[in-house]
Design a protein around this nucleic acid. Structure first.
Lengths: 257, 257
DNA sequence: GCGACAAGTG
DNA sequence: CACTTGTCGC
């Protein structure tokens, strides 16, 4: 079973990219972030034609998440319980016996911004909910754009990034707390393999991609039952080099189930 | 000698269309309208590589005209004398012994708009200047987007258009006054030929192109010496069906000189 | 509809 | 740099 995540930075713009990628990479589940469209505009027909169910929760301009799946999703939830939030950042569904939670975590803007406090509060609420979900679902995957690079080696330039937004101690602690609920960052199981890339996001600005000035901020976190069945986890870096790319690339994890 | 006109509705967007069209239609002179770019951004190098000189006068966002030519242009003028106007709507040059005046005439917006008065004043100033130029230049072509359909048959639906903007009596009188200086509307010499189309512009809105709901508002007007040498004049309607087309197509007149 | 801009996010 | 929503012109 393959489970993937991709922050598409507008599904309106990236719909054809996603369809083409799915054609070549017929994963079982694809979590999308930053769809940036309201539910009435979600292109479910196009995905259905490609053989995918879709569930989604979106808003105008900002945020928006979706889950595409080959098998029918059940027990769909569209928000974090226990957090009043206009932002559409969470979607969960059970697919083929696996609980999949797709998230678009807040960016945080800057350490001294109110948005940073919101980010930490949001992560706390997520951790609480994920712990409850993990208690119920043996097979659970939490995946999406976390807007946190967990370690110095997940940045292209630690001297530049350590302590800054996306790499600050409180954000890493918030991510760590998610892992503490028993989840494994699947990436780290395979990062030593040959020819592996290190990043999942490159800023559009300052030639980030050309300079390989990236970060690893998109993750697939798996419960113990799934982590032990994980056989690979990697970024499809080639997508960043296409025409009109998202600033993020797909991250795919494979499980032997 | 072939002389053409094309309102490109942003040369930034249409640069590749123009280069591709010139490759297949190596006309001697091409007058462009609505380039919508300032002179520092005019892509003269790209046109030079394609074998064309270019002279141009543009502004941000609106208007902007240019002349591309295989032979070097001389005696270039960049405005209508006798009319104070920020709008970049006129460019003239002598190419291979022919005086070419490229114009982007005001649209006029609506009959009761101040822009309509501006349009009529502008045409009056143009007529005065063209008469003076015609007195000096035996071989003269006045071409561009005139924003006037001269006759009912130059509209797809006279019942809808007669009397309205682009087809009102005062606008037609203003255009007539240009012809009265001794110019010939080259189109009318050949419009009965087989397979001719009737229009040069189709509104982007309401499926104008799909419905062939067009107007003939782009013209090539020639002095007597050239009119008698004119061998064809037609619209390259196919350009309207390409990807990301301008709402206008090229109009090409051929002269046996 | 499809250009142009401006302002806001990331 | 590349998205968004707006307004404007045609």
């Amino acid at each position: 079973m393959q489970i993937a995540t991709w922050n598409v930075n507008s599904l309106n713009v990236r719909q054809e990219h996603v369809l083409a990628w799915l054609e070549n990479n017929p994963v079982d589940v694809l979590a999308l972030q930053e769809t940036k469209l309201t539910d009435d505009r979600f292109p479910s027909a196009a995905f259905a034609e490609a053989g995918y169910y879709s569930v989604f929760t979106g808003q105008k301009t900002y945020n928006g998440v979706a889950l595409l799946s080959r098998d029918a999703p059940t027990d769909v939830e569209f928000a974090l319980p226990g957090l009043v939030d206009e932002h559409k950042r969470v979607i969960a569904a059970t697919v083929a016996g696996v609980r999949v939670i797709g998230v678009y975590c807040p960016n945080g803007a800057a350490l001294d911004s109110p948005k940073f406090d919101y980010k930490l509060d949001w992560f706390a609420a997520l951790a609480e909910w994920v712990a409850a979900e993990a208690a119920v679902h043996d097979r659970l995957v939490l995946t999406g754009d976390f807007n946190v690079a967990p370690r110095p080696e997940d940045t292209h330039d630690p001297d530049k990034w350590e302590g800054r937004i996306l790499c600050s101690p409180p954000e890493r602690a918030a991510l760590e707390k998610l892992l503490d609920t028993g989840l494994t960052d699947c990436w780290r199981l395979f990062e030593e393999r040959e020819g592996r890339h290190r990043f999942t996001w490159w800023d559009y600005r300052n030639g980030g991609w050309a300079r390989n000035a990236g970060l690893r901020i998109d993750h697939v976190l798996a419960s113990p039952a799934l982590a032990s069945a994980c056989r690979d986890c990697r970024a499809h870096v080639g997508e960043r080099g296409r025409k009109r790319p998202s600033d993020h690339v797909p991250v795919v994890a494979e499980f032997e189930l």
